[in-house]
Simulated assay, not measured.
Amino acid sequence: MMNADFDLDRPASESRIVVAMSGGVDSSVVAALAAKTGAEVIGITLQLYDHGEATGRTGSCCAGQDIRDARAVAEKLGIAHYVFDYESRFRESVIDDFADEYMAGRTPIPCIRCNQSVKFKDLLDMARDLGADCLATGHYVRRVMGESGPELHRALDPARDQSYFLFATTQDQLDYLRFPLGGMPKTQVREIAKELGLGVALKPDSQDICFVPDGDYAKIVKKVRPEAGEGGKIVTRSGEVLGEHKGLIHYTVGQRRGLEIGGQPEPLYVVKLEPETRRVVVGPKSALAVTAARIEDLNWLGEAFEGEMTAKVRSLSKPAPARFDGARVVFDTPEFGVAPGQAAVLYAGDRVMGGGWIAETEAAEEVLAA
């Protein structure tokens, strides 16, 4: 089993490491690597949303089975393990925000909100209260020491990189956080788990938002905000009514399926959502082309930077050449699938420079018309 550098300021024998344990293979291996350093290790699991218990489905983050798995790993490693009930906090800061964003016609990313609030604020505060030297997590991202301190970089394995979801990590948090898996492929992580005989070695990765394991976002939003099911009109950009819909929560910008409007000369996509009028505005694919996006709540992790940058506007999209003018991300060539509510994350090479939430976009058609 490889040694992981936790970059401790004191000898490991005098140090304490808190590990965020979700019950999955990644955080379990982090706990094992931490224990191998000789430091005192405390595993903490936050019970956020017990949807796994309700549905009988495993693989959703911090559900009942995950808590049992985390506890079993801690016992195997001989480390302390504590479970804290954070369902109320999670509901207020993540689930309610998720519903409100959909209600406002935006495309939410709850995993970022969770990292921004519960995981990298509450859990980090808890680790400090416990006198830990650092908080270690199973995220696939790298903490690299630069001339001005720690920097956030993409994971070496691009297929596992989670840096997009961590753009809101502050410099103060980055000083305290450790990401031991950022330099490993997933296959190596599972091999370590197998070598140690951890029961989670072959546990499948969760592919869904933890509190929506069946993918039915609308059901969750309507449960939190019953008024979300109010219908409205599907219209063209000129206002021509093409049909009816059963609630804005069933649609996101860029969506084509589910519109159920036939007889059109070309495929139509959702190009805008209007919560005030409850209208779904549709248009041709060309109407989705965006030249710039204004962002808000900027989190900047680097010094002033004027070199070449790229931007990601979706977790699975390829970084696109872009520049940042202090308020907007301006793309070198038009981007598709850019929507308010998503995050725009800026990179210089592999380094995360910062990012923010997309407040509005500038359509390529409007720029050309001007």
Rank of each mutant, 00 (worst) to 15 (best):
K219T: 10
V221E: 03
K223N: 04
V224K: 12
A228W: 08
G232E: 01
K233W: 10
I234Q: 01
V235D: 04
V235W: 02
T236N: 00
R237P: 00
R237I: 03
G239M: 05
G239I: 00
V241D: 05
L242D: 05
G243S: 06
E244Y: 15
K246R: 14
K246M: 12
L248E: 04
I249S: 07
I249G: 07
I249C: 08
H250F: 15
H250M: 13
Q255P: 08
L259G: 13
E260H: 06
E260M: 03
I261V: 15
G263R: 02
P267Y: 11
L268F: 00
Y269W: 14
V270T: 00
V270I: 04
K272S: 14
E274H: 01
E274A: 02
P275D: 06
E276I: 13
E276D: 06
R279V: 11
R279D: 13
R279N: 06
V280R: 03
V281P: 05
G283S: 14
G283D: 07
K285N: 13
A287Q: 00
A287S: 11
L288A: 07
L288T: 04
A289N: 01
V290K: 05
V290T: 09
T291E: 08
A292V: 06
A292E: 01
A292N: 04
A293D: 03
D297L: 12
D297I: 07
L298A: 01
L298Y: 04
W300A: 02
L301A: 07
E303N: 08
E303Q: 09
A304F: 09
E306M: 05
E306K: 07
G307Q: 02
M309S: 11
A311W: 09
V313H: 15
R314F: 06
S315A: 15
S315P: 11
L316N: 03
L316R: 10
K318Q: 12
P319S: 11
A320M: 15
P321T: 05
